[in-house]
Design a protein around this nucleic acid. Structure first.
Ligand code: SF4
Ligand code: SF4
Lengths: 141, 141
DNA sequence: AGAAAATAATACCTCTGGGTGTCATTTATG
DNA sequence: CATAAATGACACCCAGAGGTATTATTTTCT
């Protein structure tokens, strides 16, 4: 039982970008992506144009069109992806959900919570699309 | 910037139960709680009766009524609170949000993700309402 | 030029979490 | 017994996430 989770769109972005990272030069069509990535077709379409608007991928219109990463896979960290997707999310540093903690000293949870949350941030910052597509590991789709 | 967060009701539950833990025998009225806990009044009311139905607190109706913990504060872990509140949440073990990963070997993210998520679970399981109200620490409200 | 194959735009639907508003019920006490 | 002070029960509302459907645009190919 885990309580951490990103929102679906972010998870989908991981999958999509991870898939595109297999060959960063190639232009993948929606259908090619669809077969691997287990995302409802219409929603995938929407996400792809969203990712395009957000600048994470380039789109090529017209026949033989499709999508490809805007940057080299080693230059896109998971952290980049999350901040890009989760923009609406107010940065929530407080275990109790306070946005305005005026405590001078920290409460019993503060440091423990921060430790975990910073180790998550660390993980996201150190892992990039190249890392998660290394051939030592099986692909996640 | 942190991406972990429980839903608001769970955070509210932490605050409410943490407050009630100050004196586990005392019966606190909604108004007493309201002044400390920074939750919209009507919603607080609703949450209090929810927590009652869920069995985390007892309510006393009528004049001089209010709420108090059902168990000793040292016997209610944060984990208990979270599972109780977040019941609808499907246990999400997969970084990519898959519910049916058929990989025999684990992908590049699996172990790293699991490590963080299990250290969170650990924290929640080891901390209880007595722990977070120790006088060494300032109260979180 | 025109058909085919792709993405873009737009509009809508549905469900849930968070939040409000009103009235009903319970209980202590003068 | 009547009133006041508390909680309980409902019945809404709203915004946003996730998802669907339809039509428009862009490009290639014959
Ligand atoms: S000290 Fe406690 S209440 Fe204040 S921000 Fe940190 S975790 Fe939240
Ligand atoms: S191996 Fe990877 S894809 Fe499979 S459950 Fe673990 S994290 Fe998810």
């Amino acid at each position: 039982m885990s309580f951490m989770n990103f929102n679906k769109s972010t998870e989908y972005a991981f999958r999509i970008l991870g898939f595109l990272a297999l060959d960063e030069r190639k232009i993948y069509s929606t259908d090619e992506i669809y077969n691997k990535v287990k995302i409802p077709y219409r929603y995938l379409r929407k996400q792809l144009t969203n990712l395009t608007k957000k600048g994470l991928i380039n789109s090529v219109q017209g026949k033989h069109g499709g999508y490809r990463l805007t940057k080299k896979k080693s230059e896109i960290s998971l952290y980049d992806i999350v901040v890009c997707m989760e923009d609406g999310v107010l940065s929530n540093e407080c275990f109790f959900g306070y946005t305005d903690c005026h405590l001078i000293e920290k409460c019993a949870m503060h440091d423990k919570w921060e430790e975990i949350s910073s180790s998550l941030n660390n993980l996201l910052k150190t892992m990039n699309l190249a890392d998660i597509t290394r051939k030592e590991y099986p692909a996640f789709f």
